[in-house]
Design a protein around this nucleic acid. Structure first.
Length: 134
DNA sequence: GTTCTTACA
DNA sequence: TGTAAGGA
């Protein structure tokens, strides 16, 4: 499908992107550093974002607004198979404040496993953990 | 006028 | 993250 080439076609300057996403240039550049996006450059070193980049930034923005840190966002977007699992783990708690204890324990167990495997995703679950020690 | 990189209150 | 400096 050549729709892909259109979505990945570098078209927007950082100025347009910031207006489209409501993000500051600082944030956009920072996310690029974190390799969350990979805009191409013009011959003059100016960043050129594709529709996909904008879409990605919007996704990142929504994730950040849910209180997810860069590390977490990174794993969700860059991760291949870890994506759905990580996103579900991070999103579900925020959307289901009244989750049953059974569900919560199940979630906690899974996240505890994640914790030992990836220490940096720590505060992604810290909030949930506190709910257990009330 | 816009964007770029580096660096620091 | 914001912002200033110095260039392109």
């Amino acid at each position: 499908m050549r729709d892909e080439i259109r979505r990945n076609m570098p078209l927007f300057s950082i100025g347009i992107v910031t207006k489209l996403t409501e993000l500051t240039p600082r944030q956009v550049r920072y996310y690029e550093q974190q390799e969350l996006i990979k805009p191409s450059r013009t011959s003059g070193n100016q960043r050129l974002f594709s529709f996909n980049d904008v879409d990605r930034l919007l996704h990142i923005k929504s994730l950040m607004e849910k209180g997810i840190n860069i590390a977490g966002v990174k794993e969700m977007l860059s991760g291949k198979k870890a994506e759905s699992e990580a996103q579900a783990a991070a999103t579900a708690p925020a959307q289901k404040p009244d989750m049953s204890d059974a569900e919560l324990r199940k979630l906690l167990k899974r996240q505890l496993t994640e914790l030992t495997a990836r220490p940096n995703q720590n505060h992604l679950i810290r909030g949930e953990l506190s709910r257990f020690f009330h």
